[in-house]
Every structure is written in C-alpha cells, then in structure tokens.
C-alpha cells in the first residue's frame, strides 16, 4: 500500500520526462508502479471522457467516462504481447513487464494531461448552447475542435516526454527510434479500430444516445476509411 502511494506521488515525474529519473522506473517495473499508472489512466481518462460526452447528454458523459479508459486498456491488451516481442527483437533490451510499464507510463502521461485539462473543457461545455438549441451547430463544431486540439496536444506531449526515456534504456544504438516507431504504428492501428468499435465518443446530436452503435462489428475502421476515400472517385467516373 505504501509503495502504491509513493508511486502515485511520483506520477507527476512522468510529465517532467527526465530520462535519468524515469529510467529507474523501467529498470524496476514493480507492481506498485504498474498500478499507479493504471490508476492515472483510469481516473484521468474517466475525467476527460465525462467532458467529451457531456455536451451531447450527461448520460453520454457517463458512457464515455467508462469507454475512454476502456479504449486505452483494450489497445494495451491487444498489442501487449506484440509490443513486448518487438521491443526485444528490435534490440531495446526491454522485457515484457518493462514494455508493459513503458506503455502504461506513456498512456498515463496522456491521461494526466487530458485529465488536468478536463475542468477547463468541462467549463466550455457548460457554457455552450445545448444540442437542438440556437447556435448548437456552431457549438458542436467548436467543441469538437477543442477536443481534437486537446487530444493532439496531450498525445504529442506524452510521446515527446517518453521518447528520451526509451533512448536512455535501449541497449543498442538506433534501437529506440525503431521500437518507438513500431509501438506508435501498432498502437495507432489498433487504437483506431477499437475507437471505431466503441463509438460514439462525442455523439452526434441527430443520432440516438447509446453506449455503442448496433453495427459496431459490421465493418472495420479501415473499410470505412477506404469507402470514404473511393466514394467520390466512383461518383466522378460515373
């Protein structure tokens, strides 16, 4: 218990991203550090998730508070084995447990940043016109843009803080960029699919309020993307 509290107190170190300090986390991937990162993802993700869905309806906020941490954990679960193998094959020298902690650390800093910004975003949502009211269409676009900006900022910052740590612990010169690129590509690929399966997150006002769409498993995100890309071309050729 004492170890978990100590690890929780050390969580802001993730945002500092000092390699000489965080390197020690990866060299000693104890259960307390894993749990502390998981707690940060759960709480930070839930807080931001609530904000993300709240404009559509308070119930939607509750749904997304559950779904956002779930999305992160499902992405980790899907890629955990592969990321561990890639870290070893590509020469970082990190084992499976260390890779899991590295992933959790990266997502935890993302969750800390988004969680910390959620009160501000929540205030904006409370001040915005309600769905169906006057100015709702503009509010929808503005809030969506705000969330995209926050998520992009948190994602880029978390990765920029984490990369020097990976470079410091890697056994082979040149392993860090390879491992980092492989993890990033895998997490983006899987994360996009899980977020597609777990949609809606923001919730279009015209569509019904639901936890997940009934057609969640009818097509993949990539099929949808392909259809969107090819549809205008088919129209032109006709």
């Amino acid at each position: 218990m004492k170890g978990i509290l100590q690890s929780l107190r050390e969580l802001p170190l993730l945002c500092q991203g000092r390699p000489e300090v965080l390197q020690r986390w990866l060299e000693d991937p104890g259960a307390s550090r894993l749990l502390a990162c998981a707690a940060a993802i759960l709480l930070g993700g839930a807080a931001y998730g609530l904000t993300l869905g709240f404009w559509r309806a308070p119930l939607m906020g509750g749904f997304v508070a559950v779904k956002l941490p779930l999305l992160i954990f499902l992405t980790l679960l899907t890629n955990g084995l592969l990321n561990g193998m890639l870290a070893q094959v590509l020469g970082s020298g990190l084992g499976f447990r260390q890779t899991l902690l590295a992933m959790l650390m990266s997502f935890a800093s993302f969750a800390l940043i988004t969680g910390a910004l959620s009160p501000l975003a929540f205030m904006v949502v409370l001040q915005a016109p309600q769905p169906g009211g006057a100015g709702a269409a503009a509010a929808y676009r503005n809030i969506l843009l705000m969330h995209v900006t926050i998520i992009a900022f948190a994602g880029v910052t978390a990765h920029r803080r984490f990369y020097p740590v990976l470079r410091a612990v890697s056994q082979q010169a040149g392993a860090a960029p390879r491992v980092f690129a492989a993890w990033l590509a895998g997490n983006l690929f899987v994360g996009a699919q899980w977020s597609w399966n777990l949609r809606p997150f923001f919730g279009e006002p015209a569509k019904p309020l639901e936890f997940i769409r009934p057609d969640w498993n009818r097509s993949t995100f990539y099929e949808f993307l392909w259809e969107k890309i090819t549809a205008p071309r088919q129209t032109q050729t006709r």
Binding site: G80, L82, G186, N217, R218, S219
Partner: peptide, 16 residues
C-alpha cells in the same frame, strides 16, 4: 503469435 489479438479484433469486426 504476437499479432493474434489484432487479427481477432479486426476479423470479428467485419463481415468481409
């Protein structure tokens, strides 16, 4: 083997 969770996720998410 490392790719199997990903294959399962995408395979069960489509009818194609």
């Amino acid at each position: 083997t490392g790719f199997t969770p990903l294959i399962w996720v995408l395979g069960t998410s489509t009818a194609s």
